[in-house]
Simulated scan of single mutants.
Amino acid sequence: MAEAREHGDDRAPPIERPVPESQAPGATAWELSDPVRYREYELRGQRRLRQEYLMAAEQELPKWKALLDRARASGAPPAVIAEAQDKIRRLEARQTALRNGEPPETRTE
């Protein structure tokens, strides 16, 4: 554990920092002046977040499935295999929920 803390873990995906809010497109004065227009602005942001999540999930799911296959083939401990299966299951469930119109969330737990 200390080795991973100091040098990282090859199994961990790279950290991609989100665009700081100050650089994200903000609401215009026109949108801020009217509750209806501001709600439309919020909905656009939610749609954008949903699309970004879905695109990221489409890229990550094959990687997780390949890792799971390698873990099974190499005789990894059942706990490691169960953890990978759980991550895949939760990612697929979140992907399905977003496709069905649920609002985007940062945490599902």
Rank of each mutant, 00 (worst) to 15 (best):
Q23W: 05
I15T: 12
A56D: 01
L61K: 00
P104T: 00
A73D: 13
R70K: 15
A71C: 08
E16N: 12
L67H: 11
A71I: 07
G26S: 13
S22V: 15
E6Q: 06
P18S: 10
H7T: 09
R89N: 06
R47A: 06
P20S: 08
M55T: 14
L91I: 11
A71H: 04
E92A: 03
A24I: 04
R17H: 13
V80T: 15
L61W: 06
P35F: 01
A29I: 11
E3H: 12
L49C: 05
R50I: 03
E83Q: 06
T28G: 08
Q51C: 03
E16F: 14
R44E: 10
A84W: 12
P78E: 02
Q46A: 13
G75R: 03
R44S: 10
L54F: 06
L54Y: 04
Q59L: 09
E92M: 03
R17D: 10
L43R: 14
G45I: 09
P35Y: 03
A71Y: 07
R99S: 03
A93D: 10
M55R: 14
P18G: 01
Y53N: 06
I15E: 11
G45Y: 10
A71V: 08
R72H: 01
A84M: 13
N100M: 11
G75K: 00
A4D: 12
P14Y: 09
A2C: 00
D86S: 12
E83Y: 06
R94E: 04
T28E: 02
Q23M: 10
W30K: 14
R11H: 11
S22I: 13
K87C: 01
E83A: 13
P77A: 14
L67C: 01
P62Y: 03
A93G: 12
R37H: 10
Q85E: 14
L68H: 02
E105D: 05
E92S: 03
T28R: 00
V36Y: 07
Q23Y: 09
V19K: 11
R11D: 15
K87D: 10
M55N: 12
P18F: 00
I81P: 02
A66I: 00
A79C: 01
T28N: 09
Q85A: 08
A12K: 09
T106H: 01
P77C: 07
P25T: 02
E102Y: 03
A73H: 08
P35Q: 08
G8D: 07
L54N: 07
L43T: 13
P35H: 10
K87Y: 10
H7S: 10
Q46V: 00
V80S: 12
E40A: 14
D10E: 15
A12Q: 11
E58A: 07
E31H: 04
A56M: 01
A2G: 07
D10G: 00
A73Q: 14
R99P: 02
G101E: 07
R50G: 07
W64S: 09
V19H: 07
H7P: 05
E60A: 12
R47F: 04
Q59P: 01
D86Y: 10
A56T: 04
R48P: 02
P20T: 02
A12G: 03
Y53H: 09
A27L: 05
E83W: 04
